[in-house]
Design a protein around this nucleic acid. Sequence first.
DNA 1: TTTGAACGTTTTTTT
DNA 2: AACGTTCAAA
Length: 721
Amino acid sequence: MSTLIFDSLNEAQSLAVKAPLGHQLILAGAGSGKTRVLTYRIAWLVHAEKVSPANILAVTFTNKAASEMRHRIESLLGTSAKAMWIGTFHNLCHRILRNHWREAGLSEHFQILDSDDQYRLLRRLILSLNIDEDKFPPKEAQWFINAQKDQGLESSQVPSHGNTIQQKWIMIYAAYEEACQRAGLVDFADLLMKVNKLWKTHSNILAHYQDRFRFLLVDEFQDTNAQQYDWVRQIAGSQGYITIVGDDDQSIYGWRGAQVENLERFRRDFPQVSLIRLEQNYRSSGTILKAANALIANNQSRFGKNLWTTQGEGEKITVYAAFNEFDEAHFIANRIREHQARDVCLSNMAILYRSNAQSRVLEETLIHYGIAYRIYGGLRFFERSEIKDTLAYLRLIANPEDDAAMERIINVPTRGIGDSTQALLREHAKQHQLPLWQAAEQMLAQKLVPSRTASGLTHFLETIQTLRTDIHNLSLHESVQHVVYNSGLIEHYRKEKGEKGISRIENLEELINAAKEFENEMEASDVGQLMSPSPLSAFLSYSALEAGESQAGLSQDSVQLMTLHSAKGLEFNTVFLAGCEEGLFPHYLSQENPEKLEEERRLCYVGITRAMQKLYMSYAEARQLYGKNTHNRPSRFLKEIPGEYLDGIRIKTKVSLPESAVSKSDQKTAAGLRVGQQVTHRQFGEGVILQQEGQGDRARLQIRFARVGIKWLIASYVDQG
DNA sequence: TTTGAACGTTTTTTT
DNA sequence: AACGTTCAAA
């Protein structure tokens, strides 16, 4: 490796990369090359400071970012970086817990509970505790428990303040804790909490990690929570060198316990932190950057920084006032075609939105236009119910004490084990302090179940046992395949009518493939997650930790659709920021609370700064939201951007013609009416056509009337205005 | 116990 | 609109 590569850095970057050993806080604005700085810093440590890669630990926000970083480092160094630990907090903690399960008080076969599993478990517990489900909804219990865990509090440590409601929550938490412990289950927050506790109770283990990882680098520090902060502080000890990178303006995970204050706290807790600001932006045009700066300046609580660029002004930001979400989608699709014609490849364009629900109309329109797209988020692969059912079979096979898994599949497919039988089982299990599995065996042996259900239950137990012996000598993917085909799940889904059943079966096939790929990767990376007691166990953990970044068809050139949250860290030539309306963005649940509103603004900042050359922002005057027609004002964020950076339709304009609708001749009806046109109606008065269904005289038109709102009418009853 | 239909409710972001 | 829950009938 030549030192020449380090010459390509700017002054601030170079300062950060070549800094003498010590603690560093790098405040890195959007597009300032922070990933570059991190990877180069690591390369510098290895190359110039002669640090062994085995002594380096890097924490990233997503699994994807981790593997990207590994690649970059390897290509910089020209060697494998296997000895280096790079991963998310959750991933690294998982690895540590697999190494020290005994000391952490876990079962060797512990499995990870994802948030859906957690919800189901809580719901069941609340029911069995005879607590009113309406007063203590599982969702809130989940929220409560996760919030406590993020603070590092076990159920016994949560103060009740003599508050009876709080006591109930604590009671639920305690029951949940016990259930997890008994079944060998660990949730996301546990991964961190258990490692923190492990380190506090076993100083030798902590010392081992402190000794090994003298060089710590943490990305996206503004999105760390209290537990993660504690984790970093512990492993650093008094010997470690920490580099943290963050941007307070891009803190968008406050709602799940992230604390921006951690940036400030770091500076207080660690002496002699050198602070470096990266303020030169290499990504966006001057206009886009200035717009972003102007927007974020409306936030009160920030470190304060100003991004600048040497790039030219570039094009203005196009704001489009759509009539409704369909018009918005058409507009976007047309623009995508234009850019495509100008040689911007599809994968360099992204449509960003606030909530996943917005994706449907966009998807449908893109399909209509024949534009390839790839969608992130929504239901991820490993979260689909058919996949989770299969995984539950595998989990129960691997660990008969996994009650959550057993609950899930005991009657899937239906085998006559209904609610009452299940209640009976639970009761027996509770009284004898047994896992459900053993409770079932006992009850059958003691003939405590009616004969008809007994046969169903026996059949279930036998199925699982047979599967267990069957797959004993099979490889991972063969095991998965065997379970898919012999558990009865395939037949079960085949019976399901419509396309749903078909796609489920396809997904199950895909699961077998995923197992195969996982196998290959394990072999290639020799160590990897091999700490797990078995390949199956490793695969199960993987499925919970990485819910499915890997999706079909990712090699094809396609437009990227995702929420603003998942766009963090990415960049695109052209960005469409859709749904810039009050109530949608900022979301109405955040409108009242100033802090939440600032987070929404940061989210908008993140969205804007994803764009390199061209940004479109659009809003719809009318939109179907939650099954109702809504009329929302343009987002306040649009108004916070100075008009000089904006182009196109003025924001306050009441009516403007959607060009996409006009240009399409097939939108015309026999009466010569078209979308966007002003019309009058004898009874309802003046209005604007929003949408059309059908052709000719029998066409139905959706019209927004000034006086009476939106109505669907037959074309022949409308006069052109 | 299972099934289907009617009913009512609920809408953010995710490692 | 989409989902989950509840209720009644088989």
